Computed example of a mutant assay.
Amino acid sequence: MEKQFEEFKQQLEDSGNVRERLRIIVADLDSVTRVMQADLLQVHYSSRSPEILKKAKSHIGKLKELYGQLAEVIKGTPGQYYRYHDHWRNQTNTVVFLIVYLNWLETGNLLSYAETQDTLGLNPDEFGLDIEDYLIGLCNVSSELPRYVVNQVTIGDYDCPKRVSKFLSDLYAAFRILNLRNDFLRKRFDGMKYDLKKVEEVLYDVKIRKLDSSGSAIETKQEAS
């Protein structure tokens, strides 16, 4: 009996050491994502300035470094990825949101699962990106876009609602293919249709007011000509 509990003691100590190492890395991950989020907040109050996007993008190198450190820790505990996954899950949801959102701001396209892994320097055979973490990150992007649309219209970008409506419609249609059994993810997906509805309401309002990208009413321009 004593021998068995000595083994338990060693296993618990080893696990505690792993968790402490992960805690330190995840704390750094939190710090980087907070700064990156603060940088990206600026896009709500200006056009998609290359300087703002470049500043936010500059943090990706540090994210890759930190995920490399996480991978190194988990490499020492083969087969234990999901035992410790909760330590970095929430942070990874945020990281996926940030880099997918940043990519959309730059290109108007969705960053794929494989591209997201590549951006973070992840090796799926050793330490990959959990699919549900990626999907929750996409739901976070969806939640952010209605606010972005409202603020862009406020500063005169009347084409923005149409672009976002098309993107969210495609994303929502793609999600409908999935048979989601994760309750939290299912709830986040259910919220996506309300995000789309908010954007469509803004788009409808822009159309009713007959505004173009210059901020002028279309009828007024036609009369002037």
Rank of each mutant, 00 (worst) to 15 (best):
A114S: 11
A174T: 09
I136Q: 05
P146C: 06
K166Q: 10
C139M: 15
S47G: 14
A114D: 15
I25K: 02
T77D: 07
L180M: 15
D159W: 04
R188L: 12
I177S: 12
V153Q: 03
H44L: 11
F167T: 00
S143F: 13
V141W: 00
R163L: 12
G191V: 12
T33N: 10
R34N: 11
S58P: 01
V32F: 08
E65C: 08
E13W: 05
V100T: 13
K54C: 09
V199S: 07
V206S: 07
A217H: 06
K221N: 05
N151P: 03
Y204V: 01
I177G: 04
Y134E: 02
R181N: 14
V18R: 01
M1H: 12
V141I: 08
S112P: 04
G108Y: 04
S213E: 11
H87M: 14
H87Q: 11
E6Y: 09
Y134N: 01
T119K: 13
D190Y: 15
R181V: 08
L66K: 08
C160F: 07
R181L: 11
F189K: 12
I136N: 00
I99R: 02
L135F: 06
D133Q: 12
V32P: 09
Q11A: 12
E20F: 03
D190G: 11
D30E: 13
Y82P: 01
L135H: 00
R83C: 05
E219I: 10
I99K: 03
N93R: 13
G68L: 11
L41C: 08
E106M: 06
K54D: 12
N151Y: 08
R83V: 15
T92I: 02
T92L: 02
K55Y: 05
L180C: 09
V96H: 03
Y82H: 00
P161C: 09
Y204S: 13
L22G: 02
C160L: 05
L196T: 06
Y113M: 02
K3C: 05
F97E: 14
K62E: 12
K198Q: 13
A217S: 08
K198S: 14
I52A: 10
V43T: 15
R188M: 15
W88K: 01
K54M: 09
V18F: 00
K207C: 03
S58I: 06
L53Q: 10
